[in-house]
Design a protein around this nucleic acid. Structure first.
Lengths: 346, 346
DNA sequence: CTCCTCATTGTAAGCGCTTACAATCGATGC
DNA sequence: GCATCGATTGTAAGCGCTTACAATGAGGAG
């Protein structure tokens, strides 16, 4: 005999009583509960997960699916760890386990997700790196499983999402540069298929328009999260009849290559080319002059996502709470010395 | 009616047949199996995880427990993602799901692990950042659950582990520096309680001894994974009657602070102070002169851990395989320009 | 003293799946 | 034509837990 039955026999009560005592059911004599808990502790008993889930119909766990790119494992990583940390803290406080579900991108990530969903392995899901058209969202929506996405998407209807305030960042960056007298502002965009690339691009166009600046596709670069593109970007920006005087970087590491190329050409960041990075990444914190960038709390992002999920889960959601949460986490400007007045302004 | 019963009714067969068909049991007419699979596909059926686990007694999943430090979320992060990627690929190929289990360090990480173990939530476990004395290992060992640790420990008996070859790295580094004529070699050690700190320290002492160099505790620094310690390290090394001429860094980011301080003092890395980093980290790749360091494959580390675990799991281990795997993943030297001949050698 | 109530506990029926064992049936051997 | 065998399928007993419902018994009301 094992499991709860063993405990019950040991105590001379029924398994029902043990179960009730363990689960905080009020219909148990406090003295009995005390004994049960004490014995459970002594025997190192914990209810079998599978049996519990089967009987209750819930797993008390939520999944956070992330896609791993073997080509660039260091790319998304330290973004996620901070987020995970924030999520776990909140979820744990609500008795939920966070299961990070890594899926290598070369595998079928849709089927991967589908398996977890249809097997009922989790009570809720958080999705990262949503795409503009993302079948995963349709899948989750039709499954009825509570979920939140880290990133917006055109797929699915009115679902919960948490995203970075790309628009706000872009507005602040462009305005700052315009104030500095820049009229020719370049931008780098991520080259993957995540939706944030499109959003960042749109915000770029919108804000140029707002300030009456002309959009020049020649000033739009596509980059991966690595510093190698510096040469082509710098040369592409400057070696033209109407050189750009500023650039906004999606991936801040690109600054490393840009700094290097500028140095080779005897130019100085902040004077000859104004640079604003998107998110203050560890790898460029040490660049001199310091890169003007935006700061955010990964922890808060994770927290926000976890809360948005909790709001949808029947077990934790107060009945009166609105189920759908859609919010953009703001980033704050960290002025550095990588930008400044345009040289040939006006 | 739901689940397998629904499928069975739809097909006009018993649930047993459906189950057999789905699980590859040979005692099923191939024609029947085809129909079952086709219908399952059509209805989007996948066996309920909990029921399956309960009936079979196994979960088909393994956990990878990592501890997150809210104080420094960027510390361990991008180490893990590469490792996870390697693990997931191997495990998935063996029909196992990898569940990354993040635990915030401020919580009781031992209890956290214990819960997963005693609830039977996973069939195997991989532990990261083992400590010299690590109760988690004793727990796992007495639980009988297959497990592997990423890192050695004095706890537990003869268990499987995968670790970095700190000894090899240190031997190569010290020998290289000695060849360059250095006699006063400093070192930085991690300030946390993970065992690798102690191992790195011991390797440092052993290799000094091997080359007949005297151990000077004044040349041993304790650092966190941040660049801030550069000033005190550089000053501490040089402002003494018998200055050190070389330093080996556990955390390579420390090089950033050191470079900065050296520059302030008008000194040059590689000439006035030889620097060898441990692991080629992204954040210092842009430093000039390039830091001499060691390179490793995070992917391979993950793969090795996964394989070591598979060797212990009854479902995947060929009966003849030895259960305990203990191996050190080697790192290869990447010569940079941050080290060179000692100035006042001899 | 009886009836009723409330607090506590026990009984037992699942939760959805797997699997040992029994049952069926056509084919084979004599 | 009958026993036998193998291939296939069905029956039903769990896996360990939760929970609706029944049962028990002590204490209070009448």
């Amino acid at each position: 005999m094992r499991g709860i039955a063993r405990l019950a026999r040991e105590l001379g009560v029924s398994t029902a009583t043990v179960s009730r005592a363990l689960n905080g059911n009020p219909n148990v004599n406090e003295e009995t509960r005390r004994k049960v808990l004490e014995t459970a502790q002594r025997l190192g008993y914990a209810a079998n997960q599978a049996a519990r889930s089967l009987a209750q119909g819930v797993t008390h766990s939520v999944g956070f699916m992330i896609e791993l790119d073997p080509e660039s494992t260091t790319s998304t990583d330290y973004f996620f760890m901070g987020v995970v940390e924030g999520m776990q803290a909140i979820l744990a406080a609500h008795g939920l386990d966070l299961l990070v579900l890594p899926c290598v991108k070369s595998q079928d990530t849709f089927t991967f997700l589908q398996r977890f969903v249809s097997r009922g392995a989790v009570d809720g899901l958080i999705l990262a790196e949503t795409r503009r058209i993302d079948r995963r969202i349709d899948l989750l929506q039709s499954s009825g499983l509570p979920f939140v996405t880290l990133g917006r998407s055109d797929s699915g209807g009115n679902h919960s999402w948490i995203d970075l305030d790309f628009e706000g960042v872009m507005a602040t960056a462009v305005e700052r540069l315009v104030r500095f007298g820049h009229r020719r502002i370049a931008v780098t965009l991520p080259s993957n298929d995540a939706n944030y690339g499109a959003i960042f691009a749109q915000a770029y166009r919108d804000n140029l328009a707002r300030h009456g600046l002309e959009l020049d596709e020649g000033l739009v670069f596509s980059t991966r999260r690595q510093e190698d593109d510096g040469d082509s970007i710098v040369d592409g920006l400057l070696d033209r009849p109407d050189p750009a005087t500023a650039i906004i970087l999606f991936y801040e590491v690109t600054a490393i290559g840009i700094y290097r190329r500028l140095a080779e050409r005897g130019l100085k960041p902040g004077r000859d080319l104004s640079i604003i990075g998107f998110r203050g990444e560890e790898s460029v914190r040490f660049l001199m002059p310091q890169v003007t960038c935006f700061q955010m709390s990964l922890h808060d992002l994770g927290t926000a996502a976890a809360c948005a999920l909790l709001a949808q889960m029947p077990s934790t959601a107060p009945a009166f709470s609105s189920k759908v949460v859609q919010s953009r986490v703001p980033l704050s400007l960290m002025p550095g010395e990588s930008d400044g007045p345009a040289l040939q302004s006006g």
